[in-house]
Amino acid sequence: MNAYIGNGAYCYANSAAMMLAAKGETIEPGLLEVVSGFSLGAHLIPSGLLFFDNCSETPDSGITRAMELLGFRVQHRVQEEGTALPLYELREALDQGPVMLGPLDMGKLVYNPNHNNLGGCDHYVLALEIREHEVWLHDPAGFPYVCLTLEQLNEAWKGGVFPWSPGAYRFWSGPERVEQLDVKELHQRVLSWFRETMQNQYQTKAAESGRTGKQAILHKANQIRDGAIDMDEWSHYVYFALPVGARRAHDYGSFFKNNHGQLSGLKYKQSRQFGECQSRLAARHWQAAADAMEALAETEAAIEEALLQL
C-alpha cells in the first residue's frame, strides 16, 4: 500500500501532536488519530447527515483517551457555558507550554480568509502565547503563527455551538509522560479500547433506530442513487467526510499492518473505497457514487465484525 503524505482535516490530532512535540515527544498525528478510536464506525445524525465516526465518542473524549493510552497524563479542563473567558487559567497553562484549544467555531477564526463560509464547523488549534490583548496560535488548517484578539478568541471558543461538546472554553495542557510502552503493550491496550468503543456504539439510540454502521451507509447510498441530497450535504461529503475518511482508514491500515493482517487489509480496502466514492460524488456521477458507497457499507460491516471479535 502506498503511503499518503499530504493535507487532511486532522485538526485535533495535529494540535495534540504539536503540544506533545513542545515537550520533546514525537508522536505522529496519524497515530493519535487512530488510537483515539473516534473514527471507527459510521452514523447518521438526526438531520440525516452521514458521519464516518463513532457516535458513542467525541473528538474531545477521543483525544484525551489517545494520550492516556499512549502513556501521557494531560490536564483537560472545561468551563460551564455562560462563564467568562478563563483568561487567568489560560495564561497559567501557557506558562507551562503550548495549550490545545477546542472545539472552536471556524466561522469566527477571522485570520482564515474563508471563515465566513465555515460557520458551525468545529476546529482545534494550539495556543502559543498571549501578548497584551492578542493570543497567538498555530492553526493546523494551514495557518502558523496567526493571532486573534482576546475578544475574537472568546467568540470562537465560548461554546454553545456543538451539542456533542458540552461546556465552554475546553483546553488541554501540560502533557507529561507517565508510562513508556513497547509496541506489543500499546497494541494490546489499543485493540481492547477499539473493541470497547465499537460495543458502546451498538448501545446508542442511533444504533437502536438503525442509524449506525452498514445500515446508515446503505441508507445514504440509496438517497444518493435517487438524487435526494442537496448541495450542502454534497459539500460535506466531497470536501470533508470522504477525504478525511480515506486518510483515517489508511492510517488504521498502517497501524494494524504488523499485528492484525485481516483488519489492515480491510482498512486499506476501505481507504480506496472512500477515495473512489469521493471522486464519483465530486463528478456528480450519482449511480457510480452510490455503488461505491454500497461497497463501503459492506466493508464497514466486515470491519465491525472483526473488531468485535478481537
Rank of each mutant, 00 (worst) to 15 (best):
P98C: 11
Y202A: 11
R225A: 13
Q262H: 04
H250P: 01
Y145M: 12
H187D: 03
Q188G: 12
L50Y: 07
P59F: 04
G119F: 14
L109S: 01
N222T: 11
L150K: 06
L307D: 01
R284Y: 12
S15Q: 05
V35L: 03
G227N: 04
A127R: 09
Q273N: 03
R225F: 03
H250E: 13
D53S: 14
R211T: 00
P243M: 04
L126H: 02
L281E: 06
L49S: 13
L94M: 11
A206Q: 15
Q262V: 14
E57M: 15
L137G: 03
Q180C: 08
A302V: 04
P163N: 11
G261M: 04
L307Y: 09
A127V: 05
M231W: 06
E25V: 02
Q270Y: 01
L281Q: 10
E68S: 10
T212C: 13
T58E: 02
N14S: 12
A301K: 12
H187T: 09
H187A: 08
S173G: 05
R77E: 13
Y252P: 01
C277A: 15
T197W: 00
N112H: 10
P86S: 12
G82V: 10
G275L: 09
Y10M: 06
D232W: 05
A42Q: 07
A302P: 00
H138A: 02
L94V: 05
E57I: 02
G167Y: 05
Q270V: 02
Y111L: 01
Q262D: 11
L69H: 02
L191A: 13
L150E: 06
Y202I: 03
Y124A: 13
